[in-house]
Design a protein around this nucleic acid. Structure first.
Length: 418
RNA sequence: GCGGGUGUAGCUCAGUUGGUUAGAGCACCUGAUUGUGAUUCAGGGGGUCGCGGGUUCAAGUCCCGUUACUCGCCCCA
């Protein structure tokens, strides 16, 4: 039985699960539009260099998680592991650098070659927001507020915590990095193996180590606060004030670091404790250097990405299907008329299914199976009178309705259901 | 890349110290019901016990390997 399976870490989204995904995407899209972010899409694969150069040569994503392969012409291409680099590339490719600020919303699959586990897949789905061309902290606040509103609309507000940190500008970061490396070099033998690797690749990560031995060292490590220059401190202060004004709660977490090289200043993460080892639901930050680094004009950017799969797992309620009604024709004449009646109702905005075959009990069963709210039963008697028996399958009540009034009758119930 | 757990019907799972023909619930199909579903009753179909090897008179059960899933580490949404 286990022969025909999807590739590891990928899965089929059958209707019940797809509906949750769709609900997440639609909810987010509508709110993003209220903030002035329009949906766009970039290809799901790009030249490998688009990701390799920008994400950082030592980042985990680049070193071990990319789906990279050679195309027929020998070009190295990569399935996108995230979308910020792709959006930045599109921004440059399409000459939008004169059209700032650019405000984009996107939704789609990303690919990372990881060991799958709860809430983590090789083909994952993300929505995201990117704001390009706004250097002020207002941008950070706007993007964060939109994310918070989306999570609230999804009913997840009380199940996530906003963690906030600043990575400072490059001057501050370089200064702190140097100090950190010096400090941990002095205790190299005491560091865990993981952290010894981090020391070279991303020393800031050591601050977030879960290893007990590391934590002892971290407790006495230099604090970033002492190395943030004035500009970085001011910027962070304005972001915090902006959030305060909007009543958006956050927790400062000075160990919150980013895995990707292009981040600076604000870093944030909405986290949950309900997804096993995965905590991040929506995360992002500022990436002022990215566009310039890719060869475009220096353009500041800030944005975030959120895991659709993870948010779908967290939803408290199943998104409702639209109200469905089922036609149950009896006899040749009724069957012949059924498709036309169904189409007419559909034209008027109703969802209608047909009980195609079998005797009456069978057809009723089918109507029930497909989740119809109403069964519309009609045979020769009803046709002679121009009526249809409309049975409410949830209450068992049944009444005759003139065929001409059918749409009106059903639409009134559809409104009621909202 | 590294550790732990689990693979028996479409789904959720029983299966004794190894012992004849591998079970249950749900789902599915048929009938009781040729104009009334969801409830009830009767019957029916459905299994290379993940795969390969080994031990044994005998393996779903024990051993080894392998593969898939799953949970965790790393890292990330």
């Amino acid at each position: 039985m286990a022969k025909l399976q999807p590739i590891r870490g990928t899965r089929d989204l059958l209707p019940a699960e797809f509906r949750r995904h769709h609900f997440v995407i639609e909810t987010a899209r509508l709110i993003a539009e209220r903030y002035g972010y329009d949906q766009m899409a970039t290809p799901i694969f790009e030249l490998t260099s688009v990701f390799a150069r920008t994400l950082g040569d030592t980042s985990d994503v680049v070193t071990k998680e990319m789906y990279t392969f050679e195309a027929r012409d020998g070009e190295s291409v990569t399935l996108r592991p995230e979308n910020t680099a792709g959006v930045a590339r599109a921004f440059i490719s399409n000459g939008l650098t004169q059209a700032v600020p650019c405000k984009f919303f996107y939704a789609g699959p990303m690919f990372r070659y990881e060991r799958p586990q709860k809430g983590r897949y090789r083909q994952l789905h993300q929505i995201g927001l990117e704001l390009l061309g706004v250097p002020q902290p207002t941008g950070d606040v706007e993007v964060l507020a939109a994310g918070a509103m989306i999570l609230e609309a999804l009913g997840l507000k009380d199940r996530v915590t906003l963690e906030l940190n600043t990575l400072g500008d490059s001057e501050s970061r370089d200064a702190f990095r140097t100090v950190l490396i010096d400090y941990f070099q002095g205790h190299f033998e005491k560091l865990s193996e993981d952290s010894r690797n981090r020391l070279l690749k991303n020393p800031l990560r050591i601050l977030d180590s879960k290893d007990e031995g590391d934590r002892v060292l971290v407790a006495d490590a230099p604090s970033y606060k002492d190395y943030l220059n004035q500009a970085s401190q001011d910027f962070f202060g304005e972001v915090k004030e902006g959030l305060d004004r909007l009543g958006i709660a956050y927790q400062l977490n000075d160990r919150l670091v980013r895995g990707l090289d292009y981040y600076c200043y604000t870093a944030f993460e909405f986290t949950t404790t309900e997804l096993g080892a995965q905590s991040a639901v929506l995360a992002g930050g500022r990436y002022d250097g990215l566009v310039g680094q890719m060869g475009g004009p220096e353009t500041p950017g800030v944005g975030w990405a959120a895991g659709i799969d993870r948010m779908a797992l967290l939803l408290n309620e199943e998104p409702q299907k639209p109200m469905l009604s089922a036609l149950v024709p009896l006899g040749k004449e009724a069957e012949a008329k059924a498709t036309a009646i169904a189409d007419d109702l559909r034209r008027q905005g109703l969802a209608v299914d047909l009980a195609y075959t079998g005797n009456l009990p069978k057809r009723m069963k089918r109507a029930d199976k497909v989740g119809a709210k109403f069964a519309m039963i009609f045979g020769d008697d009803e046709l002679a009178k121009g009526e249809i028996q409309v049975k409410d399958l949830s209450t068992g009540e049944q009444k005759a309705v003139a065929i001409d009034d059918l749409a009106r009758e059903l639409l009134s119930h559809k409104e009621e259901a909202r």
